[in-house]
Simulated assay, not measured.
Amino acid sequence: MSGGNRAPFVVAHRGASGVRPEHTLAAYELALQEGAAGLECDIRLTRDGHLVCVHDRTVDRTSDGTGLVSEMSLDELKELNFGTAAEPSPVLTLSELITLVLDWRSQPSKLFIETKHPVRYGALVENKLLAELQRFGIATPASADHSRAVVMSFAATAVWRIRRAAPLLPTVLLGESSRYLGGSAATTVGATAVGPSVKTLREHPDLVDKAAAAGRATYCWTVDDAADVKLCADLGVSWIATNHPGRTKAVLDAV
């Protein structure tokens, strides 16, 4: 099997975050250089309405600052360093990340965008996301296969909002419960894929076949161990999110 041409395809989790600071341009550029078929990011809304790539509610863990993302303006966030002392990096906006993906000429890649909930801005996050995708001309793909963006969330309501407003955009309902992913939730919200953790997949490998029988793909996170990469390949997982895209691709190429 060739990891570059057949599933499972490699998604760089917050970029090549195993070796570069997560959600930085450097992490995403390295992931693309290593041949990642997809880039994963988490988005949050700033006080003044900008979408930024930050996983946590606060900036405390990933920057040299402190405070809630939702209470800070974009200008305030840009004053912080999300990189290292040797290689400083400002906060990355979703707009900047989309631009990187669309301008990268070596190979086309998909952007897997996770909206975080619960948040104070609620549905406004999805509304702003759709507006941004529309601005770049990628909100209404010809088909799910040709889409450059995939929207994901642990919140079923968020997935439903996307499916209702942009039915051609592929969506992933994330979760750690096999019952939740394999039951009626994914059907109710119209998710095109389910997203179990690798721990859930180990415990319930039948999830992949059940999803396929319902016409859904499987996105598994966060897969860094070689044995887990091989398990995903054996089970027929469509996309695997990893902190080490280059290393994971090498494992798949050897399978």
Rank of each mutant, 00 (worst) to 15 (best):
D42S: 04
A155V: 04
A142T: 02
L102A: 05
L130R: 09
T84F: 11
V69S: 05
G67L: 03
V159C: 11
D64R: 06
Y121S: 09
A31W: 05
V91C: 06
I98N: 03
D64Q: 04
I43A: 00
L97N: 03
S63K: 09
V54N: 00
L97M: 07
L92D: 03
T115F: 05
T84R: 13
I43Y: 03
A155E: 14
H117E: 08
H117T: 10
R57D: 14
V52E: 00
E79S: 10
W160L: 15
C53I: 00
C53G: 02
L74F: 01
E29M: 13
L45R: 09
A86E: 15
S63G: 05
A142Y: 00
G38P: 10
S143N: 09
R148H: 05
A131K: 15
L100M: 10
F82W: 05
T46Y: 02
G35R: 10
D48H: 01
L124R: 15
S153C: 04
S95K: 14
D42R: 02
V119L: 11
S147T: 02
A156M: 05
R161E: 13
Q107I: 07
N81P: 08
V59C: 09
L130C: 06
R148N: 00
E76V: 07
V69Q: 06
H50P: 06
L39W: 03
T62D: 09
H146E: 10
P108N: 11
A37V: 04
D42L: 05
A31L: 07
T99V: 12
H146N: 11
S143F: 06
R47C: 11
G137L: 06
V150L: 03
Q33D: 12
W104K: 06
R57G: 15
N127T: 14
A123C: 13
V91H: 02
L133A: 06
Q134I: 09
V54D: 02
R120I: 11
E132H: 07
P90W: 05
H117W: 12
E71S: 15
S153L: 01
S109R: 09
R44Q: 11
A149K: 00
P141I: 05
T84K: 11
A31Q: 04
E71V: 09
D56K: 12
G35H: 06
R44E: 00
L80R: 08
A86F: 12
Q107S: 14
D64M: 06
L51W: 00
G49S: 09
A156R: 06
A26P: 05
L111E: 02
A85E: 15
F136H: 13
K78G: 01
S143A: 09
S106L: 13
F154L: 09
D145T: 11
P141V: 05
G122M: 14
N81V: 09
L130V: 08
L32C: 06
V59A: 07
A131C: 10
L74W: 00
L77N: 04
G137V: 08
F136P: 02
Q134C: 13
L80Q: 04
L51A: 04
S89E: 15
S106K: 14
A31M: 07
V150G: 03
H50G: 02
T46M: 02
G65P: 03
V151I: 08
V119Q: 14
L77P: 03
G137S: 10
S147C: 02
L124D: 13
T24A: 10
L102W: 01
Q33K: 15
L92Y: 10
Q33Y: 08
L94T: 04
S95L: 07
W160T: 13
E96A: 15
H50I: 03
E96W: 07
L124K: 15
